[in-house]
Amino acid sequence: MAAIDPQDQLKELDATLSGIEQVLDIPAMERDIAGLREQSADPELWNDQERAQAVTRKLSHLEAEHNRVTALRQRLEDVVTLYELAGEMDDADTREEADGELASVQKAVQQLEVRTLMSGEYDAREALVTINAQAGGVDAADWAQQLQRMYMRWAERHNYPTEVYETSYAEEAGIKSTTFVVKAPYAYGTLRGEHGTHRLVRISPFDNQGRRQTSFAGLDVVPVVEQSDHVDIDESELRIDVYRSSGPGGQGVNTTDSAVRITHIPSGIVVSCQNERSQLQNKATAMNVLQAKLLERKRQEEAEKMASLRGEGTSSWGTQIRNYVLHPYQIVKDLRTGVEVGNPTAVLDGDIDEFIEAEIRWMRQQESEATAS
Rank of each mutant, 00 (worst) to 15 (best):
Val289Asp: 00
Leu290Arg: 09
Met306Asp: 13
Met287Trp: 01
Glu301Trp: 00
Ala284Val: 02
Ser272Met: 11
Asn288His: 10
Gln279Arg: 10
Leu294Ala: 09
Ser278Tyr: 04
Gln274Ala: 15
Arg277Phe: 02
Val289Pro: 03
Glu296Lys: 10
Leu280Gln: 12
Cys273Tyr: 06
Leu294Gly: 10
Cys273Pro: 07
Lys293Ser: 09
Gln291Trp: 02
Met306Asn: 13
Arg297Gly: 04
Glu301Ser: 12
Asn282Lys: 03
Arg297Ala: 13
Glu296Trp: 09
Arg299Val: 06
Gln281Pro: 03
Thr285Phe: 00
Arg297Gln: 15
Glu276Tyr: 13
Ser308Leu: 08
Val289Phe: 02
Ser272Val: 00
Met306Gln: 15
Glu304Ala: 15
Ser272His: 06
Glu304His: 07
Gly268Trp: 05
Met306Glu: 15
Asn288Ala: 04
Lys283Leu: 08
Ala286His: 01
Ala303His: 07
Gln279Tyr: 02
Gln281Ser: 15
Ala303Tyr: 05
Thr285Ala: 15
Arg277Leu: 13
Leu294Trp: 05
Cys273Leu: 09
Glu301Met: 11
Arg299Ser: 09
Glu276Met: 11
Ala286Gln: 01
Val289Glu: 03
Asn288Glu: 14
Met306Arg: 15
Glu276Leu: 06
Arg299Gln: 08
Val270Arg: 13
Leu294Tyr: 07
Gly268Val: 05
Gln281His: 11
Lys293His: 15
Val270Met: 14
Asn282Val: 09
Met287Asp: 08
Leu295Arg: 13
Arg277Asn: 10
Ala303Thr: 08
Ala286Asp: 02
Leu295Thr: 06
Val270His: 12
Lys305Val: 05
Leu295Val: 08
Ser308Val: 00
Glu296His: 12
Leu295Gln: 11
Met287Ala: 05
Arg277Glu: 12
Asn275Tyr: 05
Val271His: 10
Ala303Arg: 14
Ile269Met: 08
Gln300Ser: 09
Leu290Glu: 09
Leu290Gln: 08
Asn275Ser: 14
Arg277Asp: 12
Ser272Lys: 12
Glu302Gly: 00
Ala284Cys: 03
Met287Leu: 14
Leu294Phe: 10
Ser308Glu: 13
Ser308Asp: 11
Lys293Met: 15
Ala284Trp: 00
Lys283Val: 06
Lys293Glu: 13
Ser278Glu: 04
Ala292Trp: 02
Gln279Trp: 02
Gln274Ile: 05
Lys293Asp: 07
Glu276Gln: 14
Ala286Lys: 01
Arg297Trp: 06
Thr285Ser: 12
Ala292Asn: 04
Val270Cys: 14
Lys283Pro: 02
Gln279Thr: 04
Glu302Ile: 06
Ser308Trp: 00
Lys293Pro: 03
Ile269His: 05
Val271Met: 11
Glu302His: 05
Ala284Met: 02
Ala303Lys: 10
Ser278Cys: 03
Lys298Tyr: 04
Ile269Lys: 08
Val289Arg: 01
Arg277Ser: 14
Ala284Ile: 01
Leu290Ala: 07
Asn275Asp: 11
Asn275Arg: 07
Gln274Val: 04
Leu290Lys: 05
